[in-house]
Design a protein around this nucleic acid. Structure first.
Lengths: 145, 145
DNA sequence: GCAAACCCTGTAGTTACTATAGGGTCAAGA
DNA sequence: TCTTGACCCTATAGTAACTACAGGGTTTGC
């Protein structure tokens, strides 16, 4: 199949496939006489593997490592794979915590404007301005920005 | 003060300050005879405003709008500021939900390897491979990837 | 005077794509 | 056969928000 079909079946863009090939994540396929890429089923499977890992927000660097393991199964212990997943989970966990704090901060700031005001009197803007002038801010109540 | 001191007091990098100037977020300051930037207190306050908004994960485009309002307070209703904050809150909220799903998915996948295995037998890798071959995956149990 | 710390501009790099320019190929329909 | 739209190709640039570097100039304390 050609790149457009691989893209449709792999759930991504043809540009993305070319990008993965440049980045060494997908092997370069055979070409037709006119220079078109010609893909077979193993390419589709590898693309699906990559896209699946991307859907889990894994970095291309991490995916590259998993692809390597996939291509070279060995008797070595899978500690590295576990560690990779654990690190990813930990990153996501921290990101959630960080975003939850951020959401709280934004809501605190948002609450400074609970009724229609003019821009000149907006509690949100006044809070931001006051904080910038050193007055201390409402949204980072637990510590400095 | 010079850019290094502004950076220290504003809690960011001198490069970042130059970047903000190029992006039009900070006005270009006066210069010494040798070409060095010379900043006064209003610059520090504007930088603090920007950094504070950045700490709330606002985009530079959104910050630019708030800075405009700050510099040109008006009698217009502050609906736009409210909408800006609401949109930001909504984005963060959706991002949290998305990351929570992702965390769950990763933990499901991680659980496929509960004891030491070899790479060749790793449940994580086997799950990813099986999914790539069309078998359905464990981590996206509620729908396709 | 010397050296370290700072300053300057211009450019490039980071990550994972995404878009565009300019040109070639293919296949269906008239 | 010709036309045209859809597809293909490579090379390059852009996205967002920084961050780093090259190459060179300035300041300040010893």
């Amino acid at each position: 199949m050609q790149i457009g079909e691989l893209a449709r079946r792999g759930g991504c863009d043809a540009e993305t496939i070319r990008y993965y090939e440049r980045e060494g994540l997908l092997p370069a396929p055979a070409r037709t006489a006119s220079g078109y890429r010609r893909y077979e089923q193993p390419h589709l499977e590898q693309l699906a593997f990559i896209r699946h890992c991307r859907s889990l927000d894994m970095s291309l660097a991490d995916i590259r490592r998993l692809v390597d393991y996939h291509q070279h199964p060995s008797a070595a212990p899978c500690d590295d794979i576990n560690a990779l997943l654990d690190a990813q989970i930990s990153r996501i966990h921290q990101q959630i915590a960080s975003l939850q704090r951020l959401e709280q901060q934004l809501q605190t700031l948002r609450a400074r404007c609970d009724a229609p005001h003019t821009v000149a009197d907006c509690g949100i803007l006044k809070s931001l301005e006051g904080a910038a002038s050193g007055e201390g801010c409402v949204c980072h109540a637990d510590g400095p920005a």
